[in-house]
Design a protein around this nucleic acid. Structure first.
Lengths: 162, 162
DNA sequence: GACCTGCATGTAATAATATAACATAACATG
DNA sequence: CATGTTATGTTATATTATTACATGCAGGTC
């Protein structure tokens, strides 16, 4: 299998994902004139610690020191910033946050969520998105945002065969 | 427009929806040998009070009397029962619950959610569902359940024209 | 540099959503 | 009616998120 396309859930050199994500974030913010502050950078980095969705209060813990506790608003504000800038997604069915691979059209989200290993795979199903749009139009519905969340078992978790 | 197909969001004779839903629920439970108890029936009825999603704690309030307070577990248990029997859906992006129009395949949910009037329209997009399934299969992903939640503005809320 | 301004973060309190654990009641059935 | 099962009641608490107000810090302007 081509190494170039990373499949979350399979072993891979994750620090490439992380580095990529951070570089992209920097670029996006600089282009938009928004500030990727230390706190926001740390939160994004923690979320990109893997391909699992991360919970706000887990971030809180990870950010806190015994002496220096971080409080919820701090984390939620960083999350809001990252969401607004399309750098992360919220997985509604998990109340958790995951790094975005395509920080452009962030009102379209499509996820495969593994119930075993919790890995979240972001799909870029143009065809699904446009079919959803068409269906909505048939109802005279004006779309703001669309989300697809699929739960199940990812390929590595079903075993090598199948 | 044909009166026979009710469009949530448009004026209609809602007690037909309600009556339908309750009759279906009764049938489903009787067929499955599960019990539609008084509490479950009341919760379902409240949820079917309209085509908006209803929050658990709003149900709590509606069920409580000044003297006789209903507690969270009671409501959440009723909700769980109704979910398990495919009589309601949970709207993840709202933390709220809405009546199900198709109490069969309840691990496929597709909703149009109006940001203005909060009406939830359940779609039955076979084509969307199968495209999602196909896309998941391409990733070697084994589906348990799939959810589509689309936010935007429903037809009546965009005005009569458009 | 001194000063302002605006954005970012800190802090305290609390709201909103949901579950665990155990006690009691209602129901079905031999 | 005794018994096991399912449903509900009750208390406490866990989890997720926001409001409101105080403080700090980065960048521009004089």
């Amino acid at each position: 299998m081509d190494d170039h396309f990373i499949k979350p859930g399979y072993p891979h050199d994750h620090h490439v994902c992380l580095a990529d994500a951070m570089a992209t974030a920097k670029a996006v913010c600089s282009e938009r004139g928004t500030r990727l502050t230390e706190m926001r950078r740390r939160v994004l980095e923690l979320i990109w610690g893997g391909h699992q969705a991360v919970k706000a209060y887990d971030l809180l813990e990870m950010l806190s020191e015994p002496d220096r506790k971080v409080r919820p608003p701090t984390v939620y504000r960083a999350l809001q910033f990252l969401l607004e800038n399309g750098l992360i997604h919220r997985i509604e069915s998990l109340n958790a946050y995951v790094g975005c691979r395509v920080p452009l059209s962030h009102h379209i989200s499509q996820f495969l969520i593994c119930n075993r290993c919790a890995t979240v795979i972001e799909m870029a199903g143009e065809d699904i998105a446009s079919m959803v749009t068409r269906e909505a139009e048939n109802h005279g519905f004006l779309i703001d945002s669309q989300t697809v969340e699929v739960h199940g078992v990812c390929a590595p978790c079903t075993g090598p065969q199948t």
